[in-house]
């Protein structure tokens, strides 16, 4: 009950400022809105590791020197960099998802949810950005250092794993953090295919309550906060990985 009183107090105070947060006192709309925050955080938490892992794999393919690995990834990177994420998402959900449903004999058998498609499309889109940044870092490792590692009996994969990626990750970290900040913002495309993340939930509320400004204030503050945290974590990692006596 203490909680209800606090909510009531908040609604009352905001009301005096001319801001309408009355929906918080309702069960249904407040629930949608709270779930929206959780869905967005969940989307971000799942998509970030997906983008990093796939980005690393893409970068490895791009620098492998094997055409059958690099050509398809290069084609995908170009396609995804040069087309709108929203269009990619709609194409994936309306076309690819339908193809999967048909192959499995009906939508009821299709395990792929709209949530999945947002993670896949946004994750792969940002992975393409990561891949380009990491590729640059991999190619910046001096060839003499790679020859030294080869001379010690490192395989191509071991050179990538122990020498190139640790160095490339450090040099591409600022670009990766930028990619992750853009990823956080891109999760809002989910509202186009009815994934009830925070923008979708906010729209649901403001169409009922006509309180766009109030919802926008929270939306903007929420995304600013997430990206503030992402940037701070990025800085922390950068400091942790800094190499003494080395220009990175």
């Amino acid at each position: 009950m203490q909680d209800m009183n606090l909510t009531g107090l908040f609604i009352d105070m905001m009301g005096r400022l001319g801001l309408n947060y009355e929906f918080l006192a309702t069960g249904y709309e407040a629930q949608i809105w709270r779930d929206g925050f959780i869905t967005t955080l969940y989307l971000v938490a799942v998509t970030i590791p997906v983008s990093l892992i796939v980005g690393l794999i893409f970068a490895a393919c791009l620098t492998s020197g094997r055409l059958w690995l690099s050509a398809p990834v290069r084609a995908f990177v170009e396609l995804t960099r040069n087309t709108p994420t929203l269009v990619q998402l709609m194409f994936s959900f309306l076309v690819l998802n339908t193809v999967v449903s048909n192959m499995l004999g009906g939508a009821q058998n299709n395990p792929l949810s709209p949530f999945f498609w947002v993670v896949a499309v946004v994750g792969l889109h940002v992975a393409a950005l990561h891949a380009e940044a990491i590729r640059g870092g991999i190619e910046a490792v001096p060839s003499s250092m790679i020859e030294a590692a080869r001379g010690m009996g490192f395989s191509q994969f071991e050179i990538l794993r122990y020498v190139q990626i640790p160095l490339a990750f450090r040099s591409s970290l600022p670009a990766i953090v930028n990619g992750l900040i853009s990823l956080v913002k891109s999760t809002t495309v989910g509202n186009a295919i009815a994934v009830s993340e925070i923008t979708y939930a906010s729209i649901m509320v403001w169409t009922q309550r006509d309180n766009v400004v109030e919802m926008m204030i929270v939306l903007l503050a929420f995304f600013s906060l997430i990206n503030f945290v992402v940037a701070r974590i990025g800085q922390w990692v950068e400091r942790r990985l800094a190499i003494p006596g080395y220009g990175l």
């Binding site: 003499s144 250092m145 001379g151 990985l241």
Partner: peptide
């Protein structure tokens, strides 16, 4: 095969002009 060459390189040490230590 590259794998055979790798086996050989593990038995033959080489030191280069540019040291090439792993900076990280």
């Amino acid at each position: 095969k590259e794998s055979e060459r790798i086996q050989l390189r593990k038995r033959v040490g080489i030191v280069f002009q540019q040291y090439n230590l792993f900076p990280h």
